[in-house]
Write a protein that binds this DNA or RNA. Structure first.
Lengths: 132, 132
DNA sequence: GTAGGAGCTGGAGCGCACTCCAGGTCAAGT
DNA sequence: ACTTGACCTGGAGTGCGCTCCAGCTCCTAC
């Protein structure tokens, strides 16, 4: 089973332009072409794109994704380094989740404070002070 | 108590250039100046900067922070709209945390798979297929 | 046989959020 | 008096990750 670029775009959630861009910069291997020179993506390509979008969603910079992609191309001997990249990235993601959660608490606090203002406690100085 | 720009930078974790930039684009009110024209930040300014960095950390785009800052300047009448902005932003942050957690599971899976390869199961086709 | 639509290429352009720079002022220390 | 260093301004430059465009080739449907 193969897929035209529009289908690959739809499946991956990336734009057609982005797919070609990823190819240009070496994030994805150049796919096969049909007789007319049009790209034919395989299921394997789609799986790789799906994984790439996970990395992107979690904020991995493109140059690191590229390093990973290059290692992958070189085969199994690079598995150790690839694992290491993922381990570091996972730690990074965990840190960022923790950071976001901490910020959420501040948001909750602010929102509660606005609710307090709405509840007619506006006159209370400490509420105003905090209302930012 | 007032603070020179270098102190405000250190306290907020933003660079001096970024502080001036935030002022230019209307994210922070122009602070008072000393006789020589140097900025003097107040505790209130630092608190606002601290909150801004939370918004930034959670990915709020600058133009929305700016809208919030402008509303804040207009006083209490805008509290409703400000609360609404924060509510929407909180929902957004929660969505992104959930998304990150989902991606973490994929990372865990990949990492486990590399561990399996290391454990010498390399010959097993399904391990290789999945190793990406 | 022709109109429409998907895809192709190389390259330019964009929005965001800073970051850096030149050239200047000012105040304090030695 | 002079050096040092923090700070000032306006404006240009940067890196990232796309996104858009002109001008082209194909295939398909009518």
């Amino acid at each position: 089973m193969t897929y035209a670029i529009a289908q690959a775009a739809e499946h991956s959630g990336l734009s057609i332009d982005t797919l070609r861009y990823y190819e240009r910069i070496g994030l994805v291997d150049p796919p096969a072409r049909d007789a007319a020179g049009r790209r034919l993506y395989t299921d394997g390509d789609l799986a790789w794109l799906e994984f790439l979008t996970k990395l992107r969603t979690t904020g991995m910079p493109i140059r690191l994704m590229r390093e990973y992609a290059q290692l992958r191309r070189k085969g199994e001997a690079t598995a150790g380094r690839r694992k290491q990249i993922l381990l570091e990235h996972r730690a990074d993601v965990r840190r960022r989740i923790a950071e976001l959660k901490a910020c959420l608490e501040v948001l909750d606090f602010k929102i509660d404070n606005y609710a307090a203002i709405e509840a007619g406690l506006t006159g209370k100085t400490h509420v105003q002070e905090v209302s930012a």
